[in-house]
Structures are given as C-alpha cells and as structure tokens.
Amino acid sequence: MENPFKKIPTILMPDELMEKALRRGEKVANEMRQKPLPSLIKSKMVEEHKVRTIGSVVADNLQKVIDKAPAVRKLPKFYQEMVEILVGIDEFKKSLGAFKWASDLVKKLTNEYAKKIRRSRTPQQAAKFRKEFVGRVKSILKQIHPEMAFIAVAREKLKDLPTFKDLPTIAIAGYPNVGKSTILKALTGADVEINNYPFTTKGINVGYMDNIQMLDTPGLLDRPLYERNDIELQAILALNYLADIILFVIDASEYCGYSLDEQISLLKEISELFKLPIILAINKIDLIDKERLNKIRDMLKNYEVIEISADKGINLDKLKEILKKRAIESYKSKLRC
C-alpha cells in the first residue's frame, strides 16, 4: 500500500499559523471596507469578517491535519509497528487529539465572537471583541504548541517510509556492508545509495524485479532484540510483516568488518526468529581463493546457497531465477493459508 503518512500536510507552528490567518483576515477586511455602507454597520462587518476568516483559517488548518492523518490502529501491522518505533502510537494519537480539541474550540469561539460583534454598539466595541478573540486563539495555539511540534517531527519521520505493494516479497538481510544494496540495484535497477561503510542504508529501500518486490533492509547487528536500534528494528519489521522469503547475504571476504563466524551466527538467529524460506548468497567470491570458498561451502552445506559477486555480476542471473521461483511459491502458499 501507499505510505499513509505522505498526505499529512506541512505543520505550521502557532506564530506561522496566526500570521497566515491574520493576513487572510486583513485581506477580507480590506475588501469589506470598499463597500458603501453606514459607518457602524461597515465597522461591525469588517470586524466580524476578520473574526470568521481568522477562525476559519486556524480551525481548517488544524482539521486538515486530523483528516489527512491515518487511523493508526487500522493500518497494516507493519505501519503500526513503525509508528510505535519511530514516534509512539499513544503520543501520536494524543497529539492529534489536541489538534481536534483546538479546532473545535476555535470554531466555537468564532461563532460566539461573531455574535458579540453583531450586537456591539460602537466600532470601538466591535474592534475590542475582535482583539479579544485573536488573543484567545493565540492562547489556544500556545497550549498545543508541544503537540504541534511533535506532529511536525512525526510527519518528517513517517512521510518517507516506503510504499509497499501486495506482491511476492524478498527481504535482503545480513550484516552492514555485505553488499545488500549492490544486489538490490543489480537485480532491480533501484536507485539506492551505495557506499563502502556500514549503515549506508538508513531505511528500507524498495525495488521491483518482474513483479517481485525486493526490500533492502538496514544492516542487522548480532545482539539481543531489546538492544537493537531503530534502524535495525525496521529491518526486523520488514522481515516479520512483509517478506515471503529472505535473501541472506554473507561477505565471504570479511571485508565488511565481521568474521564469517559472526555472520553465520546472525544467519542462525534469523533462521530461528523468522519461519521463512532462506536463500543464502555468498557474496564477493571474486575476492577469495578456492580453498577458502570450499571451506565456506562446507560450513553452509545445510542451506540453499548460491555463490555470487554482486560487484562483478557473477551468477546474478541464476540468483534472480531462484529468488523469483521461491518468492512466488512462498507467496502463493501464504494465500492458501
């Protein structure tokens, strides 16, 4: 599905929102001043239109955020978990509740002060009511400033989450710098950042290979789940909720900075944690000799293994065909369940 947080509009802070509302109110007032009406009637109409315009701009802006924000508990489990990890579901809902409270209160005050202005007896009294209204609206926005700031930060964190399609899905997993992004780019042509240092991938990159969805997950470190950081948890969520199969990548050269034993230990952890088919890609075979390759083959003889060099393009066509076949099989199996 499309990222449900992309539609949340830019969050204006209290001063920005009031400036926008006051500017719009003054524009409407100037239009009213051009009308040939008796002085008192014109003054009251100018002030009432200012109040209604200011109230409308503020309330509508707040309401638009509420309307465009998704109901988190109705989202697919992956997105629910991402909200919890990145910003916190309860805080997200609480902050949107503050927007609702403020929007409703501004609407109520708008009607109350419009009536007061219509009943006013002098231009000065009408202006006094308008100033009082503006002060109260400013006070309301000041009260929800923390929630506005929170939603602004949440929007920035959530709006760039990738869009996922209901397709057979392969999650690419493994330690940082083993070549996951290179494989994704080689197989799908996806435009991903590839650099020779750990944690280049700061989120989940998505590519497509003949109606197969491939996810390049952040590098996973081999330590207990509760010690993992947000980047690693994104990878775990991708594997848990999105993947039909896992392509686990091992750097045969160990140039990634992690030993073969460490990489195999992580492979075993992934195998135990996720009950999914695993295809094992031994990458960077162009950088090792035959003796070392034979040793690695023996260590991984219980897995479905393909030996590749993503950088040199060795065996990538073979890898592609195996992945497509296994992903479609697993996807169809899930549909039958």
Rank of each mutant, 00 (worst) to 15 (best):
M1D: 09
E2M: 09
K7L: 04
K7G: 04
L12M: 12
P14H: 06
D15M: 04
E16H: 00
M18N: 07
V28C: 04
E31T: 03
E31H: 06
L37D: 03
L40E: 09
K42V: 02
E47I: 01
E47F: 01
S56K: 15
V58G: 03
L62V: 11
Q63V: 02
K64L: 09
K64M: 06
A69N: 04
R73D: 15
K74M: 07
L75H: 10
P76L: 11
Q80V: 05
V83G: 04
V87Y: 07
I89R: 03
E91P: 02
K94A: 14
S95H: 01
L96C: 09
G97Y: 03
W101H: 11
A102P: 00
A102F: 00
V106G: 06
K107C: 06
K107I: 09
L109R: 11
N111G: 13
N111I: 07
K116M: 12
R119S: 12
A126K: 04
R130S: 10
E132G: 10
V134M: 06
H145A: 14
P146D: 12
P146G: 11
P146M: 08
F150A: 05
I151E: 12
A152S: 13
L158R: 10
D160L: 12
L161T: 09
D166K: 12
L167C: 04
A173L: 12
A173W: 02
G174W: 00
I183W: 05
A186I: 04
A186C: 07
E193K: 09
N195S: 14
Y197A: 07
F199R: 05
F199V: 14
G203T: 15
V206M: 05
G207Y: 13
D216L: 08
G219A: 08
L221K: 01
R223W: 08
L225D: 01
D230F: 08
E232R: 03
E232T: 07
Q234W: 06
A235M: 07
A235R: 03
A235S: 14
L239W: 00
Y241C: 11
V249S: 02
I250G: 02
A252H: 01
Y255W: 05
C256V: 10
E269G: 00
I270L: 12
E272L: 11
K275P: 00
L276V: 05
I282V: 15
N283R: 08
N283L: 07
I285R: 13
D286F: 04
L287Q: 15
D289G: 07
D298I: 00
V305N: 03
I306C: 03
I308H: 06
A310P: 00
I314H: 13
K318H: 04
E321S: 13
I322V: 15
R326S: 05
R326H: 03
S330R: 13
S330Q: 10
Y331R: 08
Y331K: 09
K334E: 15
L335Q: 14
C337L: 14
C337D: 15
